[in-house]
Amino acid sequence: MTSHAPAAAVDGAHAHEGEHIHPPIYYVKIWGVLLALLTVSIIGPMIGIKILTLMTAFGIAVVKAYLVCSKFMHLNIEKKFVIYFLTIALCLMAIFYFGVAPDVMKHDGANWRNVGAQAEVARGLERAKHPEEHGEHGHSEHGAKPAGEH
């Protein structure tokens, strides 16, 4: 049961039903792949291209998550309905995002403007340009009482 070659185990991972005990080396290999992916996602930002950073960061996160879910959590041999309702939970979050983003992510729209958020963005960008003018410690103390600021 446990003596089949690791390569065969990788290939046959979704094939066998009753018998899915892989030898430890199978999991160690996947772990190795995960660490390699992690290295790529850390190196990604060092190249300095924003799109590439996002792609390495999130694309690799998705790949890693897929590997962990399918191989470690054994979703690859789980009943289909489990995968369906986990996917539905993810889809709900997409619905949530698309329902909320027009109001929260954007700071203006049809006949409205989020004045407070726009002012905060302007303030923040200004602060980022001149970091020395706002002492970081001083600001944090100030920020502890948001209601008192205005």
Binding site: G99, V104, P146
Partner: peptide, 23 residues
């Protein structure tokens, strides 16, 4: 703790709470 997730004066958004609540 004095954060401002829902405080518009510091970049938060009260409408976000309403979305989280009514979702």
């Amino acid at each position: 703790f004095g954060t401002f997730f829902f405080n518009p004066e510091r970049g938060g958004d009260p409408v976000l709470w309403q979305h989280l609540f009514w979702f």
